[in-house]
Amino acid sequence: MKLLAVETSTEACSAALIIDGVVSERFELAPKEHTRLILPMIDELMSAAGLKPQQLDALAFSCGPGSFTGVRIATAVIQGIALGADLPIVPVSTLAAIAQDFFDKNNDKPLRESLKIAPTNCNLAFTAMDARMGEIFWGVYQRNEQGFAELIGKESVTTAVDVEFPDLIGAGVGSGWGVYHDELMARLAGRVSYCEIDNLPRAGAIAILGAQGFKQGLAVTVEQAMPVYLRDKVAKKESER
């Protein structure tokens, strides 16, 4: 199983290749540099693996939520490659990728112990990305038995004080926790005792989730591989003014 993944939905830019479960990744923190970096990253990864796009089994991309332009860059890169090499595409949530990365990192026992995180906190992520305009992109992810991030309920764009959540204990993960820490802590009332705010989505996690999604038959055609903005109302019609 060979899959190429791209992630450009925040100020980070990354590409990853997963070949039979082994991930190689290029990652850079580079605001507004995605268009300069992403194809060279992909080209390097593919050359290093000695692969042509036609030899891949599938593609994956972070379909959002995130910066609208950033999410469209990932979508358009993957659509272009899919058109060119006739490949299926697995869209992967940006929030799922953030949660997956958190699970993978913190289920490493020595690291967890050095950070003094209780194990109960490492299998559930209340994931929040800053969505600007006073809102966050919100999703609650659980680590399933196979180790993959699985969504509980629905993702949403919401104010911090209105987030919906299951009655479970977990960790607060993502940039949204940096901006709305107090509001979220108050709303989740004791369910969160550990927070990480520097988590950026990475193509490595997109690749892991993409490969799993591909096995589960979640791949779609190029026409169906679309961004998920969550914020769908972006302008008022004349009739609504």
């Binding site: 268009t35 194809l39 796009p53 332009t69 469209r72 358009a76 890169v77 993957i78 272009g80």
Partner: peptide, 15 residues
């Protein structure tokens, strides 16, 4: 512009 440019450049890379 970015939609067309990104799709075009990526397609050319694949081809």
């Amino acid at each position: 512009l970015l939609v067309g440019a990104t799709t075009a450049r990526s397609l050319a890379w694949a081809w």
